[in-house]
Design a protein around this nucleic acid. Sequence first.
DNA 1: TATGAATGAGTCTTCATTCAT
DNA 2: AATGAATGAAGACTCATTCAT
Lengths: 183, 183, 183, 183
Amino acid sequence: MAVDRERVLKEAAALLTRRATTSMDEIARAAGISRATLHRHFAGRDALIRALEEHGIAQFARAMDAARLDEGDAAGALRRLIEAAEPVAAVLAFLFTENQLFEGDEVNAGWARLDARITALFRRGQAEGDFRIDLSAAWLTEALYGLMGAGAWAVHEGRVARNDLNHSIAELLLGGIRRSMEK
Amino acid sequence: MAVDRERVLKEAAALLTRRATTSMDEIARAAGISRATLHRHFAGRDALIRALEEHGIAQFARAMDAARLDEGDAAGALRRLIEAAEPVAAVLAFLFTENQLFEGDEVNAGWARLDARITALFRRGQAEGDFRIDLSAAWLTEALYGLMGAGAWAVHEGRVARNDLNHSIAELLLGGIRRSMEK
Amino acid sequence: MAVDRERVLKEAAALLTRRATTSMDEIARAAGISRATLHRHFAGRDALIRALEEHGIAQFARAMDAARLDEGDAAGALRRLIEAAEPVAAVLAFLFTENQLFEGDEVNAGWARLDARITALFRRGQAEGDFRIDLSAAWLTEALYGLMGAGAWAVHEGRVARNDLNHSIAELLLGGIRRSMEK
Amino acid sequence: MAVDRERVLKEAAALLTRRATTSMDEIARAAGISRATLHRHFAGRDALIRALEEHGIAQFARAMDAARLDEGDAAGALRRLIEAAEPVAAVLAFLFTENQLFEGDEVNAGWARLDARITALFRRGQAEGDFRIDLSAAWLTEALYGLMGAGAWAVHEGRVARNDLNHSIAELLLGGIRRSMEK
DNA sequence: TATGAATGAGTCTTCATTCAT
DNA sequence: AATGAATGAAGACTCATTCAT
């Protein structure tokens, strides 16, 4: 019976997200395979994390595709992105933090491409007059990551209901805290 | 020559913030002492992280005091808090993520107390009609942490200028992305 | 297509001769078969080495037969032996070194028989007054092995021409280094 | 109590000489230290073997110095070399066989220097008319190694008396097997 | 007090070997 | 019969921690 690579990555993500020092043994056990088999599929710990990155990048890219970032107004696109990316948020947060930054390789190029797409969305919103222009698109991109990560964590810790998550992030990001007249 | 406990904590924070798995050896070397000496001052790795937490908590608490959260309107207090807490942001982000949650001890009580003060601030803003009420104060607290962490990281990575940091966080948090009429 | 047992042994000998820790995987690959198949043909690593020994012993025995050790004078017989054994020299050197001495089994009996034949040759030379008697036949046997191994290695390393090999060994062994009057 | 590096190397040589796959654990135990300590002193298995090489080279070089290869006739110098090098013979044989040939580094340069000194000795003997010239000095060098290795092994296996060893090697090498008139 | 040295406990990794197709 | 996949066992290695000076 072939090992389900997807499953291994999923379990690894789940565990590593909670504790960055999770051992290969624990990951293998969680995936229902032996340590040796885990090593057969991922040459080593680094390789596994690398694969996790590639997987996360791919998933995130797919989420962006699904969100059709270029269609409609930027705010709507952003909402769709947040919703589509929700399932990946936790892994992204982990990779973001742990990322040993193997400088100058393909994986980093992957990250850069994702960043660029999101930054482009914020730029479009600014160009179309929907988003304020005194906050740089680069910062907004980082802020989005930060809020998604915080949100995933807050849900995990039981401080925010899963059903409220996307709404909470999108509303905060788009409208801020202030109660405004016209709302 | 007495070991500078402050310095050790500072170096440890700097390193651990960047890589959660930094070894005791690296920390010791960064602090300019031997591993053995590090152990003499902090009973063990856990103890070191614990001390880091206590230190972070204390610093953060002091930042809150300095920000006089109860004075003036909530928005102003929030701005002051962000500014005052800036130097601690990175450590907080680390502790926030890594915190192994030594359930039910004094350190956690410390965190809870900090959380409570911030949450109270958001509640006050909501009660006074300044902050919207459809986003829970708990979530806003988490979001603040997330944005401070993302901001510290963005500065570290060179994507946001240090001088813009506080403004970037406060504006985003308070006003959101949307360009509104009255602004 | 049936696996060519001969080929496997040949490749194994070639690899193991160069590095005693060559893995089963490397051997299998060199032989153009899978690890599993290698195991189907040789019950395990030990079994493979055992087979290699048996094969080497058989080859060496055949070489002795071909050299007609009992015919003519001992020196001539020795020359013929060196020449006939040349192709096996490298494997013999490996087995000689690596031989884990599975005490008291048939393979060792095989070695003993070979040793005995060679030793007998040296004894004959001594008895017939051709070889000096102050060097034990047992030592001469070991020395022959040593020189054959060194020779195979020297050829492999390009320090001795293959065509000179047998002559170099035989001359050294028979005549030594010294330039003597009567030569 | 400081670990005796010499002792570790000595034990490692003794064990590895007998079985090339001796584990780090066994070596550590034989040296009376823990595995971790062994690793503290030799970064890894490779490093240990490397150190063994350097040590062997140094010892062999010292043996050459002690043998005063340039003094007296070449035959006498060779005898002195064999005697002086006897204690290192086994290690040399191991290194010779196992040598992973870390191409182009200092260790290999060390080997080359040793080879050169010995080869020079044989050349001198040839130039002075003591050694025959139809056997290349390079081959004689290899042959010397081969005989020293075979001798060490023969002693270890109980086939040659330790006290006869040097004589056996020197006589064979210098005079060959043949009984000559004048002897 | 400070530290070089030593180590126990655990993790990663590899290998020979078996299993299921 | 042949093999890709899986694994137990064993070895290499690292790290936090302790010890002796």
